[in-house]
Design a protein around this nucleic acid. Structure first.
Lengths: 207, 207
DNA sequence: TAGATTGTTAATCGATTAACAATC
DNA sequence: TAGATTGTTAATCGATTAACAATC
């Protein structure tokens, strides 16, 4: 996959959404960088640079072919290939995430949940079964799962992190409010919700 | 409040967590910038710069007084003053967020939830009542609430956003997968979970 | 053709990192 | 004092924005 910077990468899904809307709601064949930019309140040069970074080229005078670009971004961002993920921590947040239909569109499929609470184990959330954490490593190996989503409380992280570390898992999406550190070459994305809120409060207080 | 850059602001809560741990678990009186930096895999100069930006000064040779700095960061980040917030959309994610105890520590207190589903209205999630969306504007005015958390599905955003816009709300924390645009001077933080996942996938594919 | 839009080079801006003097 | 650590200036790096030629 082509290398793009993290800031660029974070903007691409927004472009994708805008292009999708242009197709679905307005049937537009072409879209200009300035139109996308205006929608997001950013610079239009940045939009062109970002799109160029993914390897797609537009048509001078006309803009970007909406169908082509949407397909291109889908492939570039990997929306078209389903990525199986397991989720540890069948609490409120875990259940919410596993029920969230929107992830499918981005290629994320949560196929099983894990917990250590005997009352939860064996139950189903929609079509997703809750398994005992002791089955985690075997199932990861058997199904070649690379992604895990962690939604256990802060106090339980230490109980489960070694299970994840000692598995074939390649990437962790961590929702627990703990800065995860893993020893080996597992990639971690700490999704600390409180940090985001702090930013919002600060923006409000300084504006 | 002192102006600090967004990147700095996003790192400060992590510093706060590390300092808290140093106090609680190890009873340390002083902590050095390099120790914090090592914990987060960042540069120690950056830690000193960030802390300096908040207006706190350390002690050459010894480091930073853990108690003082923790208190200072609490005040700087506003953790000590409770911020009342309403939540719209009593679905899985909404319930998960409203039950999340961790927010209290950061000064966020979700005191009421709103929905348009008659089956949900009137029920309680823990101590939080679910109200009809029609009561939103009155309650915001009466209680001088400034923050709203939006957890409705993408398809319902258009039904509720005008209610928020036409209220005294000052800041929106938006979890729906729609890039919110509001006309007036309301601050919006779009917390698009899918965007984060895209980043994780890309990191895995390029590393 | 003229106008609109892309693609790209150059300029600017801001954040990160390096170097080092000041300090207890 | 010597050593360790902060605070701060300077250098580097990378992302954003401006300018403009190329293009249909």
């Amino acid at each position: 996959m082509k290398q793009v910077s993290i800031p660029t990468l974070k903007r691409l899904p927004s472009y994708y959404n805008i292009i999708s809307t242009a197709i679905m709601d307005y049937g537009e064949k072409y879209i200009s960088s300035s139109k996308i930019a205006k929608e997001l309140n950013i610079d239009d040069t940045q939009v062109r640079k970002d799109i160029a970074a993914t390897g797609y080229v537009g048509k001078p005078k006309v803009g970007f072919d909406t169908f082509e670009l949407r397909l291109h971004l889908e492939q570039f961002l990997g929306f078209n290939e389903l990525k199986e993920a397991y989720l540890i921590g069948a609490g409120n947040l875990g259940v919410a995430l596993s029920k969230f239909e929107g992830f499918r569109k981005f290629g994320l499929d949560i196929t099983a949940m894990f917990d250590n609470n005997p009352e939860k184990i064996g139950k189903k959330i929609k079509d997703k079964q809750i398994y005992c954490i002791s089955e985690f490593q075997d199932m990861v190996r058997k199904n070649n799962v690379k992604f895990v989503i962690i939604t256990v409380p802060a106090t339980s992280v230490n109980d489960i992190i070694y299970v994840v570390e000692d598995s074939q898992i390649k990437a962790i999406w961590n929702f627990s409010p703990v800065n995860l550190k893993v020893s080996n070459d597992i990639i971690v994305l700490n999704q600390d919700l409180a940090t985001s809120f702090v930013t919002l409060v600060h923006l409000l207080n300084t504006n």
